[in-house]
Computed example of a mutant assay.
Amino acid sequence: MNPAKMTPPPIIPREKLDFGLDGDIPKYWLNGDPFKTRFFDALSTLFPVGERFFITCVRDFKDRTTDPKVLQDIKDFTRQEGQHGIVHTRYNDRLQAQGIAVKEILAGQEKRLFGIIRQHTSREFTLGITAAAEHITAIMADCFVERPEIFEGADDRIRALYVWHAMEEMEHKAVAFDVLQNIAKSTYRNRVGSMLLVTLLFPFHVFRIMKHMFEVDGFSRWQRTKIWAKGLWWLYKPGGLFSPMVGKYFSYLKPSFHPWQDPVVPSYDTWLRILKETGDPILAGNRLHGEQAWAHA
C-alpha cells in the first residue's frame, strides 16, 4: 500500500484521562497470571523515561523543520508521549508500593539512555532508536487490540489503559520515522543499526526487570523456573504473543518501508467512537470487541 495514498488518522493528545489506578487493582491483574502481569508491569516501568527520551530525540530536529504539518505532528507527538509518561508514572506508583524498585529501575534507564547513549552516539542514531522503538510499540499495539485473548481475564482499568496507549501509538507511529528520513536524512545503515540495538536491549531489560519482580514477589527458585518456562512459551510459541508480529517487524528492514504501509487496526474507529460518545476511556477500552469478547466490559 502506498502511504502517499493513505489518510492517516489525526494525532489527538488526550489529557487528564482517569483509569482509576488508585483503586483496588489485583496484584496479578491479568487473569491471576504472574508472568503475564509482570510482563506488562515491566513494560510500564520503562515508559516514563523512554517516552521522555523519544520526545527529546525527535525535538533535536525541530529547528531544522520548516513544514508546518511536521511541526504540528512533532508537537502532538510530544503531548501524547508526555501523557503516556504521566499515566505510567501513576501505574508505577502501584508497583513501588508492592516493593518493586521502580526508582532504581528509572535511574538505571536514565543513565543508559541519557548518560551513555545520548552522550556517545549521534543525534541521527538516537532518533533511529526512537523510530525503531516506535515501530516495535506500534506493531505490539496492533497485536494487543486486535487479539482480545491477550487481555482475557484482565482488570478493566489496566486493559483500558493499554488499549488507550496502543491506539495513540498507532496515531503517531510515523512521526519519528518521517523526521528520521526526511529531516535527519538518515542512511539505511543508521536505520537498521539502531533497530538492531533496540531489538537486543528491549527484551533484555524487560526480562531483567521481571526477574527482579518475581524475586520481590517471593517465589522460590523452582517456582520462578516454572513461571519462566510457561511464560516464555506464551510469548514465543507459534501463535503466541510475538510470533504474529514477526512479519511486520522485518518489514522495517526493507529500504522502501514506511509505517503507513499498514493502516490503523479495524477496531480503532470503534474505540474512538465509544470514547467520543461516553468520554470514558475504561468503557471504551473494554467494549472494544463487544461484550462477548471482553468478559468484564
Score class of each variant (00 low, 15 high):
58 V>I: 14
65 T>D: 06
268 Y>H: 14
98 Q>F: 12
64 R>D: 08
42 A>R: 05
112 R>G: 00
274 I>R: 06
171 E>D: 12
218 G>I: 08
128 G>K: 05
8 P>T: 09
62 K>H: 11
265 V>L: 05
117 I>N: 01
76 D>F: 09
26 P>E: 07
191 R>N: 02
172 H>S: 05
93 D>M: 11
119 Q>C: 06
128 G>E: 07
273 R>Y: 01
76 D>L: 02
292 Q>E: 14
166 A>M: 02
204 F>W: 09
82 G>A: 14
147 R>H: 15
293 A>R: 14
47 F>W: 05
147 R>V: 07
76 D>M: 06
275 L>F: 13
97 A>C: 02
157 R>G: 03
56 T>V: 02
200 L>E: 03
165 H>A: 07
125 F>T: 02
249 Y>N: 00
101 A>F: 02
12 I>A: 01
236 Y>D: 00
143 C>L: 10
220 S>P: 04
145 V>H: 04
46 L>F: 09
2 N>P: 02
151 F>I: 07
66 T>Y: 05
19 F>T: 07
77 F>W: 03
108 G>E: 11
283 L>M: 10
229 A>H: 09
234 W>S: 08
279 G>W: 03
92 N>C: 15
67 D>I: 05
227 I>H: 09
114 F>T: 03
270 T>Q: 02
229 A>Q: 13
141 A>F: 08
64 R>M: 10
184 A>P: 10
79 R>L: 15
292 Q>H: 07
16 K>S: 14
192 V>Q: 01
126 T>Q: 07
176 A>K: 01
168 E>V: 01
289 H>E: 06
279 G>L: 09
205 H>R: 13
58 V>F: 02
63 D>S: 14
198 V>Q: 10
33 D>W: 03
189 R>Y: 03
135 H>M: 09
210 M>Y: 03
57 C>K: 11
81 E>V: 03
132 A>C: 10
16 K>I: 00
96 Q>K: 15
193 G>A: 08
45 T>H: 05
207 F>L: 14
293 A>P: 08
229 A>W: 09
247 G>M: 02
151 F>W: 12
259 P>I: 06
9 P>L: 10
30 L>W: 12
247 G>N: 07
38 R>N: 14
274 I>D: 01
37 T>R: 10
285 G>T: 03
77 F>H: 07
57 C>S: 15
134 E>I: 11
107 A>S: 11
242 F>D: 03
